[in-house]
Every structure is written in structure tokens, then in C-alpha cells.
Amino acid sequence: MLWNSVYNEFIKITAKPRSYLGLLAITVLVGVILFALKVDGQSMIAFVTSSFEQTLSFQGTLLNGNLVAFIVLQMLIIHIPLLVALVTGDLVSGEAASGTIRMLLTKPISRTQLLLSKFIAGAVYTLCLIIWLGILAVIVGKVLFGNGDLMVLNSDGLVILQEQDVNWRYAGGFAVAFLALLTVSTLSICLSCFSNNSIGPIVVTMAIIILFTIIGTLDVKLFDAIRPYLFTTHMASWRSFFEEPLPLKEIIKSLIILLAHQVILIGLALYHFNKKDITT
């Protein structure tokens, strides 16, 4: 029964035009970035390496598909939560606003199963987005720019990863990015349970992300205690896969915190949805 409900929920997602907005937005944004890098990528690379090139010279193809995919991910992963929340934020509240939730609850399925099916459908949609981003960034990037070693710039300096050592890092990075976006999806569905209009949970989700990101970025001692536990702090953990040596402890810590957020948010949503007096 749960899987039938998941299927129904996913059909409903695919029937909404806004669901394709996310895919379209990713396609356009990645297209623009790839075009810009193809036209003027070398000058961007020169800007990154200029400090090093006073003393050293880099030989080989610096601007390649692996670097392009990394740049695309770095630029877009911050904006994708909006695309996720746009769809998942009204999975419950949208039905409440249109009045279909009461009819839905007359089906022989428990409220817990119904809500879980919405969470799973939201997760599948998020997975579709991240897979599409992966195809465009990694596969199309490599087709257009070729393969090669990956040069990653982080605050500690440059890390040059060998070509054969990159694919598994992307797989790991995308898995962590998916988990981070799943937290956003869970948050927006949870908020959706508390609202009867479509737009509210989407806006509140984005407001929370912006607020937490600002708290995470502000170098104020007051926030030091809470910063490591904010899910937004761990949304960039996909980058850890591109460090050498691999900071496994940090990655596991991020996974635990993201999963903990999801469990708490799903639990909160289930509790509220089961107790909720559906009047619309």
C-alpha cells in the first residue's frame, strides 16, 4: 500500500509544471556556466593560479571536464535547495490548499504511511535533480572539455587529484550532496504539514537556509557552539571528498548530523500530521 501511495505521489509531482522548472533551471544554469568556461575559462584558471605562477609553472590541461564539473557543483549546489523546496514544500500544504487532503485521507492508508509516501516521493524527485545535475556537470563537462587531473582550490591551498582518482570522489560527493538536499526536502515537507497554503513552507524553508548559512558564515564566538550542529554547515560537506587525505571523520560527522536532522524532522512531521485536525 505504501509503495502504491509513493507511486501516486510521484505521479502527482510529475504532473505539476513547476517540477520541470527545477530540471530546466539546472539545464540552463549549467549550460551558461559551461559556455562561459569554454569561452573564457583559461582566464579564470589564470586568476586562481596567478599567486603560484610567480614561482612555479603548471604543465598539462588544467581546464578539463573534472574541473568544470567541480566548478559547476560549487556554483549550483547552494542554489538547488530552492528548486527542491519549490516542489517538496507544497506536497502536503498544496493538497490542504486545494482541498484534496481530506479525500486523500479517506483512502485505506494510515496517515503515517501517507506522509511517508510523500517523503519518499520528495526524495525520489531530489534524487532525479541531483542525477540530472551530475549528468550535465560530469558527463557533458567531460565530453566538452576532456578528461584530466582535477585541481581543487580550498582555503588550505591547492590539491591536485589524479584523473583515475576522481570518479569515486564525485560519486561520494554527489551522495553527500543528495543527503544534504534530502534534509532540505524533509524540512520543507515538515513545514508543509504545519501550513495550509502552498507558498508559505517554500519561503520559510529558504528563510531558514539563509539564516543558518549567515550564522554559519559569521565569525562570531556566540555562534561557535551551535554552528557545528546546523544542517547548512554540512551542506558543503561534498567538498570533503576532494581533499587529500580524505577527512573521513568529518564526512561521517556530517552524515550523522544530516541524518539526525532528517529523523527529527520526519518524526516531528509524523507527530503533527497524525494529531492534526484536517478541516480544509
Binding site: 612555479l56 603548471f58 604543465q59 598539462g60 584530466g148 591536485i160 589524479q162 587529500e244
Partner: peptide
């Protein structure tokens, strides 16, 4: 500040001053 792995390359030289390095990876010189 740079973490990198050893890189293999081929160097070509021809008198008087023609020089070329071909490497699949990123080499630092």
C-alpha cells in the same frame, strides 16, 4: 600549500631551443 601526486611526462628537445613537455596529468615545474 600544494598537495599533488607524482606525474609522468615525456620531454622532447631539439636543437637549438625547441622544447616540449607532454603530460596527461598536471605537473608542477
Amino acid at each position: 600549500l600544494i598537495k599533488s601526486f607524482p606525474v609522468k611526462a615525456t620531454i622532447y628537445f631539439k636543437q637549438k631551443d625547441q622544447f616540449k613537455m607532454l603530460s596527461k596529468g598536471i605537473a608542477i615545474l
